[in-house]
Design a protein around this nucleic acid. Structure first.
Lengths: 185, 185
DNA sequence: TGTACATCAGTGAACGCGCGTTCACTGATGTAC
DNA sequence: TGTACATCAGTGAACGCGCGTTCACTGATGTAC
């Protein structure tokens, strides 16, 4: 094996994603990542500074990718909601880390930039719902809560089996917010 | 100090709730609990067998109390939804443990009994919403997702400040599911 | 009322473990001339 | 084309730590007679 790994940084991130997705972030250790990458246990420090540094990278990646997904979906609550839940199911490791701010460097500049971009996209999605007299911020929170709760319950294994077409199930559930509107559309 | 603590079991549970609420379940250790209770570090084993045993007790308590809260609230989606979110905010430690089944003994009989009682209560709440043509199970999941997502986002600190009357904010958000129905009522 | 004995609750020492981080180091790579 | 040198990436030993669990034990409590 060569002394230089080639792309150790990315390899460590990939391993971390795998570990978190299958065993949760609590099971993550730098030494284990190094072991999996076939490298000495002190090597990761070189790329991330410390453990929180590695998780900061994952959180930033997560916010960026979620932002991309939201911005490239059709600008309707339903499509963006599906995109949100899909992101969580497809990238459970990123999703888990993102919502545990205690684990990473919350004030990292590129992290906060990604966060604010994503939260703007989030609110613009809910803004496409028809007004009902309520404060639109309330409507936005309702939509976000619904998508987030669905994703969270799904990932925690609390949901009953939803059949063979998860996307259809997600859509059907989200549609319950303002059923008349979506039926018309 | 007396050799016998008096009610060490409950004292350890109380300390655990405090630690989890303020630092997360990842920060929980049996040795730390023993230290806080002023007792030798091997004492907890005596009452809970192992760490997962202690968390099983917390999860069971949580499901029981959540079930109580749901069953004693008025039988409407809105009231039960508020009860759900309130439970999460008032008992964050229980709530956190409940939805991390990897941490406790999932097949403990009194745990599973509490769980099934609570999930029945949960579905009966959403069943009070007016039918819209959708499978009622779908409507139930929509309502549950919304309450759960709101609680989760709130606890993770992701939400913007919701003002001085949290209960009103919760109600306003949950009302966005079927606004017409609730307005009429 | 007194005594023997079983049971229960908590002790403290020891086990083996994996962890994050620091450190002086060495091998590999790339650049300047 | 060759050489000196700086920089970079990874090594491996060591640090100090807290953890869960096991174990033989002892002090306290309660019960039977």
């Amino acid at each position: 094996m060569a002394y230089h790994h080639g792309d150790l940084r990315q390899a460590l991130l990939d391993e971390a994603i795998e570990v978190i997705a299958s065993s949760g972030v609590a099971a993550l250790s730098l030494r284990d990542l190094a072991r999996r990458a076939g490298v000495s246990h002190a090597a990761p420090t070189h790329h991330f500074g410390d453990k929180a540094g590695l998780l900061t990278v994952l959180a930033t990646e997560g916010y960026t990718q979620l932002g991309d997904a939201l911005l490239s979906a059709p600008p309707t609550f339903l499509d963006q909601g599906v995109a949100y839940v899909r992101f969580a199911l497809d990238h459970p490791a990123h999703f888990e880390v993102m919502f545990r701010p205690g684990l990473y460097h919350q004030h990292d500049p590129s992290l906060t930039a990604a966060q604010s971009r994503t939260s703007k996209a989030l609110y613009s999605g809910a803004a496409t719902l028809p007004p009902t007299g309520a404060d639109p911020r309330i409507t936005g929170l309702a939509g976000w809560s619904m998508a987030h709760g669905l994703a969270t319950l799904w990932l925690s294994g609390a949901l009953p089996d939803l059949g063979s077409d998860p996307d259809a199930a997600i859509r059907a559930i989200l549609r319950e917010l303002r059923p008349d509107f979506h039926r018309r559309a």
